[in-house]
Write a protein that binds this DNA or RNA. Structure first.
Ligand SMILES: NC(=O)c1ccc[n+]([C@@H]2O[C@H](COP(=O)([O-])OP(=O)(O)OC[C@H]3O[C@@H](n4cnc5c(N)ncnc54)[C@H](O)[C@@H]3O)[C@@H](O)[C@H]2O)c1
Ligand SMILES: NC(=O)c1ccc[n+]([C@@H]2O[C@H](COP(=O)([O-])OP(=O)(O)OC[C@H]3O[C@@H](n4cnc5c(N)ncnc54)[C@H](O)[C@@H]3O)[C@@H](O)[C@H]2O)c1
Lengths: 228, 228
DNA sequence: TTTTAATCGATATATTTGTATCGATAAAAA
DNA sequence: TTTTTATCGATACAAATATATCGATTAAAA
């Protein structure tokens, strides 16, 4: 009964987004370390490796329910499976991709997605030159077939790698077809019903931080030079 | 004198990172709206479009120094140029890319980067089959040439699209060569000197949020069904 | 066996980020 | 011209996130 109660608790208490976003980083690191046959790792070591605060690491890991041993740290395998389970990376979910251009092709060819809970099973495009071709073993189908295939194959994830102008319409087709979550690589903000999950892969956001920070750095360096 | 003082202020006061990360979104939206020849836009409209809070939008935009007009809102062109200036998107910075694989090729072929302050001028790889080939008009060079070329061309930005195992070594080559900022697409956390800027394009982080959120949603839906 | 020291994890505090309130302003309507 | 109203922007408040403190624990050293 108590067991049950705590399970419900776990489901209700949402994981803070910053924590959730650090989980993949932990998994990457832990998988790398496991190859070197380390068994235990301390929060301080993780913090060192990822340049985080060890207290923050401990707090993040507390969410997994994995308990650490004083003087040793955490069992790496336990952490990996707990984290993978939370992200649902311990089994892959099928996905359809729309927009078989250059970025789409890169995603279609990426072998590691199965480690990250994703399995791209079909690609769609509206360019007659692309339809019928095969990219990394995945056939490119006409967009018209999208709806039927989603229903037939019970696919939940849609990936948009089409140009921004087309993205909103594609999102609407996806929602209509029963897609529950959209991974959006276009730069526009998609408008979808509240119960549909949208996650943006914001490349230009990341680029913006880079270009801004760099320009501030260079400005400062010039200012220092001028003072001398 | 006062003018000068406020300029120093501006340089010293760092822009909050969440705000900075919203700037590209604003730019994307504003550029789209400008095409429709709208001149003014209110914070409430922006908030509506991007599903943000209008107060937050106003606070973000306040940082640009652009002042809005009551009852009308902000001048779109003014906002675009102020935001672009902060991100340094109003002139492009040259960049070198290392790892001319599928993701690298997608980046090399992406025409819009010049709108986002980036200009990829050369690509490097260590695969003899790739060296000498041309991708989207950019020649792939042997990694050995990296150092010299950076010095000669005074390039500040390095992009890593090589496998994770190679990424740290490549980062070290970049730092040695004088690269100041690294855009990292590999999943590992790069260790570089404190004064080098690293910005990670965390695709798997974004994917993790998606797969987790979807699995929670599906779990909840099943729980509801079972209760009936 | 006893001591030492690294680590965990609970609780408390600080910082950052987001949201609400409200008077001032100026465009548009009356 | 006067009134109305949408919006701005300053200030105050709330929530989320990060960091600090410290006793409890246990592996390893003495
Ligand atoms: N390539 C990059 O490096 C990069 C970087 C950042 C963002 N993006 C974004 O990712 C998306 C894809 O970029 P890309 O470089 O691969 O572009 P691309 O032009 O190479 O590919 C786009 C593909 O979408 C297809 N398409 C167009 N309209 C469609 C529609 N209505 N239905 C179905 N398919 C349609 C096109 O036929 C094409 O195959 C764009 O939104 C772009 O802004 C790309
Ligand atoms: N493709 C994707 O969709 C995707 C998604 C998420 C993350 N990533 C990451 O992006 C990176 C690139 O992925 P990809 O799919 O393009 O891989 P890829 O194998 O297609 O390309 C990697 C390229 O790097 C080159 N390379 C390898 N070692 C090198 C070295 N020491 N010096 C210079 N070049 C070297 C290879 O020759 C190859 O051309 C990887 O780190 C991957 O984990 C890719």
């Amino acid at each position: 009964m108590l067991e049950n109660e705590s399970n419900i608790e776990k489901e209700i208490k949402m994981i803070p987004e910053p924590t959730l976003r650090r989980f993949p980083q932990y998994i990457h690191l832990l998988k790398r370390l496991r190859k070197e046959s380390t068994q235990y790792i301390s929060s301080t070591t993780i913090a060192d490796e990822l340049e985080l605060d060890s207290i923050q690491v401990r707090k993040d890991l507390a969410i997994t329910g994995v308990v650490g041993k004083p003087k040793l740290g955490f069992d790496i395998d336990e952490l990996i499976s707990a984290l993978s389970n939370i992200l649902n990376w311990d089994n892959s979910t099928d996905a359809f991709l729309v927009g078989a251009g250059s970025l789409g092709s890169a995603l279609l060819g990426y072998k590691n997605f199965n480690q990250y809970g994703l399995n791209i099973v079909a690609a769609f495009d509206n360019d007659p030159n692309k339809i019928g071709k095969t990219i990394s073993g995945i056939e490119v189908l006409p967009l018209e077939k999208f709806g039927n295939m989603v229903e037939r194959m019970k696919v939940h994830i849609g990936i948009i790698t089409a140009p921004p102008e087309a993205a909103q319409k594609i999102a609407e087709v996806m929602v209509q077809s029963g897609i529950q979550a959209i991974w959006n690589f276009s730069s526009i903000h998609l408008k979808v019903p509240f119960n549909i999950i949208v996650e943006d892969a914001l490349l230009t956001q990341s680029l913006g931080v880079l270009t801004h920070t760099l320009s501030e750095k260079l400005k400062k360096e010039i200012a220092v030079l001028e003072k001398q």
